[in-house]
Simulated assay, not measured.
Amino acid sequence: MFKIGDKVVYPMHGAGVIESIEEKEVLGEKRSYYIMKLPIGEMKVMIPMDSIDNIGIRQIIDEDGYQKVMSILKDDCTSMSTNWNRRYRSNMEKIKSGNIYEVAEVVKNLALREQEKGLSTGERKMLENARQILLSELVLAKDSPAEDVEGMLEEFFA
């Protein structure tokens, strides 16, 4: 169980801070929800408390995790399928996993591919989504403004 003030990651949405715990009636059923505020875009997400294990909610990374993400971003591109469809499915699975290291790998690989060959519209949208997920967790992990973390990410791919 998480508590108010905890920094957590919601796979496919990114990281945020649990602002409150509320009971709401949705579709005629009363349930308790974590209300999570994302640091980017000022969006709030309702997470059903009774299904957090299925969703894959987890604590944000610590300093060691942050350093590991940085080393992933600095490393060379990992192998990706040349087949667009396979590459897209593989990257989508990595993003859905909620694993920050896999998301960092997707961001790095797609950003490098974009520089070399360009990306399709679907992959460009995937890169932007993965970037936002990565950015939201790094902002909370380092307790830094989004602009600073975004600038640091830009330096990796300049």
Rank of each mutant, 00 (worst) to 15 (best):
I55E: 00
V149T: 01
Q59S: 06
G118S: 06
K94S: 00
V139Q: 01
K108A: 09
E116Q: 13
R58W: 10
S144D: 01
E137C: 12
N85S: 07
G14L: 01
K125F: 03
M126W: 05
M46G: 15
M126Q: 12
E137M: 14
E42T: 12
R113C: 05
R89A: 09
Y88Q: 00
M70W: 08
M46I: 07
L138H: 08
R31K: 15
T82N: 06
G14K: 13
S136L: 09
K7F: 04
K125I: 15
I57H: 03
S144Q: 09
M12L: 13
L134N: 10
S144T: 11
V149F: 01
Y10D: 04
D75T: 15
K125W: 05
M46C: 11
L135F: 15
V26W: 10
L138V: 09
E150A: 15
S136R: 14
K96N: 05
S79Y: 08
I72T: 03
E137V: 13
M46K: 15
S71H: 04
L135N: 04
E19M: 12
I61G: 00
S81M: 08
E114V: 11
M1Y: 09
R87L: 02
Y10Q: 14
E147Q: 08
E93P: 13
M43F: 13
V45P: 12
N109E: 00
I61L: 13
G122Q: 09
G5C: 07
E93W: 10
E63M: 12
R87D: 00
G28H: 03
K24R: 13
S81W: 06
Y101G: 06
K74M: 12
L153T: 03
N85Y: 14
E116P: 15
V17Y: 08
K108R: 12
M152T: 14
V69Y: 02
M70Q: 07
I55K: 10
P11V: 10
I35F: 04
D50H: 13
F157Q: 07
V107R: 14
T78L: 11
D148M: 11
H13E: 02
S32N: 02
R58Y: 01
G14I: 04
N83R: 09
K44H: 07
S79N: 14
K125Q: 01
I60P: 03
E123Q: 14
I95W: 04
G5Y: 02
H13R: 13
I133H: 04
R124I: 10
N91F: 05
